[in-house]
Structures are given as structure tokens and as C-alpha cells.
Amino acid sequence: MKKIPGQGGFTKKLTTEISKWHRKKFANEVSQNLPILLIKINQKKRIPMEVASFSSCNDYQEQLLSILSFVRYVGIPIKWTLYSDGSHTAAQIAQLEDHFDFLKVKKGIPWNTIKTLKGLCKEALEDYEEYLIDYAKKFPLGKKLFYYLNHTIENPTLFIDSDILFYEQAKVVELFLTERPQATGWFMPDTNWGCLDSRYKTLYSEQVYQVNSGFIFANVPFQHLEKALEILKIYDFSYEYFSEQTIYHQLLKDNSFMPLPPKTFVLDAGDQFDFSYLFTPKQMAVRHYTGPVRHKMWQKKYKWHLSL
């Protein structure tokens, strides 16, 4: 049906207001009834993998719903490391660690005062410490980049943003662990070329399967780091929004990571101006609710996402 001028913008504004209400209601409910919600989810299956995520206090409700959706549709991981930007409250940390015995919140390095990473990071990162420190001080994504690159991968590990939700097709994640021959790792591809640092795009023409850094599954530790880290020197202490994603784009290409199917691992903003959803929980394994569609994450009640 043809839309009248301004209809899409009005729809997005209205659904954004609805989303704020649903998000607030979720926060109130889990503050009192999280144990009951976990009983309803009733997940007993354990899965031999780890998860790492990065978030702030402002993303807390999204992070919590992400954890619940993983437990609901994938299982209970060996360990979940939540790297905080340092802003999580004591109450938020307590709620997470008290109710999820596999999860540990790490507030990490005091970036405002740190002067060296010697002894605090992998040897491969030490030559780039001045760039890593500067990036982390200036941008939250700089912190995320450091924590993920410095994370010790002892088991197959999933690195995800806090605005990632899992759905009914997420059982396919188990195939990452059992598929033979085993891939080095997997990533969620971006919908189209362009979400990269402008300086990178001036050097390289359009490539197939641009990496989105919100969902990265590593079966083994990253082996080839140098070319990706050299990009930090090219940045010369100045950064754009997609600078972090550009480093991961180079890193995963160099390490032969494989793209995931976009019809089930969804990164699509096509429904941002509609009341309806392009995808239902039965169709998806994962959806990344990036900025343009963040309101879709809360447009429906959390029970819709968890199929409760």
C-alpha cells in the first residue's frame, strides 16, 4: 500500500514511544520477578561455548534481554564475560551475577589514568598500546575493541553486542561447534557496502560480505592480527563511528572467517518505518537491533521475543 507523505516518520515516532513504555515495563518486572522469568524459560541444556559482550549502564535492559534470549534459545554457556565500559551500577552487576551463575561482569581498566598496557594485554597488542589507550579513552568502541582482542579464547567463543537477540532458529549455533571441516569462525555480514571507516574505503573498492562486528563467533584464537592493527596507525589518533568495525573487517578477512546467512542472521532495517515486522521469532536465529531499528526491539513485549 502506498504511504502518504510523512507516514513512515510518524509511525517510527509512535512506535518509539511504545517501545519506551515496553522497555520501562520490562525493567520494572525483572527487578522484582527475574527468578520467576528464569523458571518459565526453564533451560537445562548446557552448550560447550563461551560468550563475551560489551555494554554500559544505559544498555542494561537490552543486555539483560539479550542474555535471556540466549539462554532461552541456545542454552547455558560455559562462561559469559560481560565487559563493562565502567558505568554499570552495583545493583545492575549484582542482579546479573546473582541470577546467572555463568556470568561475570568485568569493569576493566581505568582508562582515564592508564599510561601503559604492559602486563595487562597480550604480547601481540603491546606494540599498539599508545593507539589502543587513546582509542579507548576517546570512544566506547575503542574499549570494546581492546577487550575483545585481549580476550583469551580457550573454548569456542561468541562475541556479541548488547542489542543482539536470539530466536527459535538459534539452534543452528550448535552447528558452529560440530561442523566438519570446522571453520575458523563466523560473522554476521552487513546488509550493504559502506559501514566502514572512510579512510579504508579510499584504499579499497567494494568487497563481498562486509563484516558487522556485532556478532563474531571464533572457534579458535585470532592468528593474523598485524594487518588489522596497523589500521590504528593509519587512523593517527582520529576515529570515526565505524573505525572499530573496519579493524574487525580486516581481521576476520585475514583469518578466513565465514559469513552467516542474512535471512536467519538478520541485520535489516527495512521495517523501521512500519508497525509490522519483516521477520518473526520462528524465522530468525539472531537479529541485531542496530540504531535505526532499536525501537523494534521493544515495540513488542519481551514475551514476544522469548516466545513465552
Results as ranks from 00 to 15, higher is better:
Met1Arg: 03
Lys2Ser: 10
Pro5Met: 01
Gln7His: 06
Phe10Pro: 00
His22Leu: 02
Arg23Trp: 12
Lys24Phe: 11
Lys24Tyr: 14
Asn28Met: 07
Gln32Thr: 08
Leu38Ser: 06
Ile39Lys: 11
Ile41His: 06
Asn42Glu: 01
Gln43Asn: 12
Lys44Asn: 13
Ile47Asn: 09
Ile47Leu: 12
Val51Ser: 11
Ser53Glu: 06
Asn58Gln: 05
Asp59Asn: 05
Ile67Gln: 10
Val74Lys: 00
Ile76Gly: 09
Pro77Gln: 13
Lys79Ile: 07
Leu82Pro: 02
Thr89Met: 05
His99Lys: 06
Phe102Pro: 07
Lys104Thr: 15
Asn112Tyr: 11
Thr113Leu: 03
Ile114Ser: 13
Ile114Val: 15
Ile114Leu: 15
Ile114Met: 13
Lys118Ser: 08
Ala124Phe: 08
Ala124Glu: 15
Leu125Gln: 13
Tyr135Asn: 09
Lys137Ala: 04
Lys137Ser: 02
Lys137Cys: 06
Pro140Asp: 05
Leu145Lys: 11
Tyr148Trp: 15
Thr152Ile: 07
Ile153Met: 00
Phe159His: 04
Asp163Thr: 07
Ile164Lys: 02
Val173Gly: 03
Ala183Arg: 03
Ala183Gln: 10
Ala183Phe: 00
Gly185Leu: 00
Met188Gly: 01
Asp190Gln: 10
Asp190Lys: 04
Asn192Cys: 14
Gly194Met: 11
Tyr204Gly: 07
Glu206Arg: 06
Gln207Tyr: 02
Gln207Arg: 10
Ser213Asn: 14
Gly214Thr: 03
Ala218Thr: 07
Asn219Pro: 04
Gln223Thr: 10
Leu225Trp: 12
Glu230Met: 03
Ile231Lys: 05
Tyr235Phe: 15
Asp236Thr: 00
Ser238Ala: 04
Tyr239Asn: 01
Glu240Gln: 09
Glu240Tyr: 11
Tyr241Arg: 08
Tyr241Pro: 08
Tyr241Ser: 01
Glu244His: 11
Ser256Pro: 02
Pro259Val: 02
Pro261His: 00
Pro262Thr: 06
Leu267Pro: 00
Asp271Ala: 00
Phe275Arg: 08
Met284Cys: 08
Arg287Cys: 14
Tyr289Asn: 03
Gln299Phe: 15
Lys301Met: 06
Trp304Cys: 10
Leu306Cys: 11
Leu308Pro: 12
